[in-house]
């Protein structure tokens, strides 16, 4: 594996083939905010918070760093007025669903996001998919999945599998950035297993 040298925020950074820009940055101690990324999982590229700017001299390009492959000689900027503005709006859109989520509130603080900018629609889930992907990729149980699409997309347990697998695992619970997973579980428990 050859080493790839690139510049992130003015610093020389070394990455290896197959890494994403996000991993390269984190490896060098440069922080980029994420909501749907997890080391143990395939990158998903859904929250778009990890967006950064590539500088090609005469032009620039916004890319999402968790899925953008690290390459030699890339010049990356992780903060700019525009990046911050995009991240702020993304956070504001999510805060309309999960106004009390701890990770969201911390990021909101940093980017000056207003949690009341958009009409509240408390469904809590922000669709990061961490629980679903963790269960599928790491545990290989598929006890929880998505249903529907677009604005109606939700996560839901598969009762017949969850009844068997979840009680003793619950490893995905701490991954959830909101309280939704917990709530969905309690609901399922109450309905399906006759609590």
């Amino acid at each position: 594996m050859s080493d790839l040298r690139m510049r992130i925020d003015g610093r020389e950074v070394t990455a290896t083939e197959g890494m994403s820009v996000l991993e390269a940055a984190r490896g060098a101690g440069i922080s980029i905010p994420t909501l749907c990324y997890h080391e143990a999982l395939e990158p998903h590229g859904g929250c778009r918070l990890c967006i950064v700017e590539l500088d090609f001299g005469d032009w620039t390009q916004l890319v999402v760093s968790c899925v953008y492959p690290a390459r030699a000689d890339l010049v990356v900027r992780t903060r700019s007025e525009k990046i911050d503005r995009l991240r702020r709006t993304i956070l504001e859109l999510l805060l309309a669903h999960a106004p009390d989520s701890e990770p969201l509130r911390e990021l909101a603080e940093e980017y000056g996001a207003d949690r009341n900018r958009f009409e509240q629609e408390a469904s809590f889930c922000i669709h990061c998919g961490l629980c679903v992907r963790y269960c599928a990729e790491v545990k290989k149980k598929d006890a929880i999945g998505f249903i529907d699409r677009g604005i109606r997309k939700e996560i839901a347990f598969l009762p017949e599998i969850a009844a068997r697998e979840c009680e003793d695992c619950k490893e995905c619970f701490p991954l959830c950035p909101t309280s939704y997973l917990q709530a969905a579980w309690v609901l399922l428990d109450a309905q399906a297993f006759g609590a």
């Binding site: 999945g145 529907d148 839901a156 598969l158």
Partner: peptide, 12 residues
């Protein structure tokens, strides 16, 4: 095919 995917397809 995992049931979770079958269900997602059926609703997507």
């Amino acid at each position: 095919v995992p049931l979770s995917r079958v269900r997602h397809i059926a609703t997507f």
